[in-house]
Amino acid sequence: MSIPVLALEKVRKAFGSEVVLEDISITVPEHTATVFIGASGSGKSTLLRCINLLEQIDDGVIRLDGADITDPSVDPDEIRRKLGMVFQSFNLFPHMSVVENIILAPMRVHSKSREEAISEALELLDRFGLCEKAEQYPDRLSGGQQQRVAIIRSLAVKPRLLLLDEITSALDPVLVNEVLSTVRDLKEHGMTMLLATHEMGFAKQVADEVCFLERGRILEWGKPEEILENPKKPQTQEFLKRVHEAGRL
């Protein structure tokens, strides 16, 4: 079997005395999507931030394409260039127009010419139906549009792996769909992804594997049908019941 894009081995992370992640081991093969579900505070964001080296893990190993990225001699900037991350709160740069947001990293990090970066950015915007927003500033866009721009921004550097952290949680229910269909589109084009989400219907559609996280541990994992429809552990059943009651299934 070929080397997975991402592999975590017994990862542990604590903030002070509070253990937030414990014994996390997963593999994400190329062109697959792994979805993390779990209550808020279960450690999903922290896990994604650790993979992105925004947080330092306390134990275990994280491998990207087989190479240990938690080795102290590794340059974090070098790793982040290969990863795309989209946040719950969009985090577009408010002082830049949409197209400037997108071309920033290609120009400054990947030394592309402005013309090349712009033409690629416009191509991406066009592909996701946001072409006429290119010159707008983020505060003039709807939440859904902002989040799609954030996704495009992370795609502009052609990442090996996309990390999506509850990217629809801050959105109006009406706007959720446009963002999710963007992600589905990416999945169909073979993007390797790791997601945290509360959208169970969506998880079922895109996930190759679902992991249920509780208090920093992976309690149950497997095919989306298994986990989402026939969970074995009572905690998973309880969680899914609560999500169902909240009307998100």
């Binding site: 931030r49 992105n52 925004l54 900037d77 982040r80 260039r81 990863l83 795309g84 991350m85 946040f87 709160s89 985090n91 577009l92 740069f93 920033l104 990293a105 400054r108 990090v109 990947h110 954030a150 921004r153 992370s154 550097v157």
Partner: peptide, 20 residues
């Protein structure tokens, strides 16, 4: 979060400061 977004795009510390 602005810093986090910039860093996760691969911008260096200095570039994050300068552009974001």
């Amino acid at each position: 979060s602005q810093r986090a977004a910039a860093r996760s795009l691969g911008l260096s510390n200095f570039q994050t400061l300068r552009y974001v």
